[in-house]
Design a protein around this nucleic acid. Structure first.
Lengths: 219, 219
DNA sequence: ACCCTTATTGACCCCCGGGTCAAGTATCGC
DNA sequence: GCGATACTTGACCCGGGGGTCAATAAGGGT
């Protein structure tokens, strides 16, 4: 049973299992990963797994939820409150690409095995989309983002593109360095969102001026 | 034993099984679909499955390969040889979106379960990417496509976006009509590829003038 | 020292599901 | 009609892997 009282030692063990699971899920997929693989990797007996988790799916859910939270924090941290909407969008996109790439191991699950994560994740994903859409609407209001298309669709496109390239980078399909790739994604997103090339160029310049705000060093 | 000699009846039976498998894979995923589900849906005994296919994975592979071929034909048919590169790119993108959406059932597999399709599919996907990249290069040469980014990356972006929105449409996340959605994708792709908005707008106009070339009615 | 809760073990259970098979039926060529 | 080959059946096999459990150790609070 899951919500047991854990000692410090217990919490640590649980984390070990989470780490092992994350690695294995990412490497060989959810279905292909045996609980016995996980406990073996963590160096504990099988029964212990069920001391900390209800079942195999529970560990997956826990991983997914935590990653979402971390991503949100990173995104928030990357955005400069002073900056205009479009620049903040680009900052968020760049930060996301970097974070997803650095935590590639974790994010592969979310993409590949979305069937297994019905309720909790959807919610947080929707929230993220709403946030991005709000930013886009802001940009449309000040004229920096095209208003030929609805903000929701554009948000979907931005988020989708970011996920796409994180995926490509993780799987080795794209071998650019992180800097090169996040730069490319920024340009791409800028082009997607703007009808006016001058605005796009100016925003990219602003983004560059900010420098990349040391996106490593998670919580 | 797979490459048996099939009578007309046999070929039909095999197709029934393929259809059933496609539907079930799409509805509930590859891993979650039992061979017993497939034969039940097709209304035959379990043993018959193994008369036509070596194993569960084989039927999946066969489905995947066939879909790729059909997609390629549709894409080729949608492109107007006379038209400039950028317009042809948009035509191909629109046709792909429509085809993938109409054959949503099939395409979900390719996205979700890419682990199971190592060699054959990759090859054909790579070929498709090379084709798109070539078109993009052509567009870069005549100045209609931005040359701030390499054609390979842009090709990846275009193909990825098309797949993305087919996915969203299939899963009901986007409820636009096919026409609306393919129109949006065309605009998006045009913006992604062009640094110059005027070029983008002109190409979209050209695309619209062609009309949507009745993309239903597969071979 | 004692007891209660947490932590840990590994053998075991058991069912699900992929794959087999021996046996039957329909069909076709001749 | 007859043999041969294609087709079809459903009971069975069997291994893997998710999940259980009784026993034991280790803390840690009083």
């Amino acid at each position: 049973m899951n919500d047991r009282q854990h000692t410090a030692q217990g919490a640590e063990r649980k984390q070990q299992l989470l780490d092992a699971a994350a690695r294995l899920f990412a490497e060989q997929g959810y279905a292909e990963t045996r609980v016995s693989d996980i406990v073996e990797t963590a160096g504990v007996a099988k029964g212990l797994f069920y001391w900390y988790f209800d079942n195999k799916e529970a560990v997956f859910r826990e991983l997914a939820v935590e990653m979402r939270h971390r991503l949100r924090r990173v995104q928030a941290a990357a955005m400069d409150d002073e900056a205009p909407a479009l620049v903040r969008l680009l900052q968020g996109a760049v930060a996301s690409v970097r974070f997803m790439a650095e935590n590639a191991a974790f994010f592969s699950l979310l993409e590949v095995e979305r069937r297994n994560v019905p309720d909790v994740l959807r919610e947080s994903t929707e929230q993220h989309l709403r946030d991005v859409a709000a930013l886009i609407r802001e940009g449309q209001a000040d004229g920096s983002v095209t208003d030929t298309d609805p903000a929701e669709l554009l948000a979907l496109s931005v988020v989708g593109t970011v996920g796409q390239f994180s995926h490509l980078h993780r799987t080795g399909r794209v071998t650019l360095s992180l800097d090169e790739m996040s730069g490319y994604v920024a340009r791409l997103v800028a082009r997607m969102l703007t009808a006016d090339e001058k605005v796009a160029r100016a925003s990219l310049t602003a983004l560059r001026r900010k420098g990349t705000p040391t996106p490593a060093a998670g919580a």
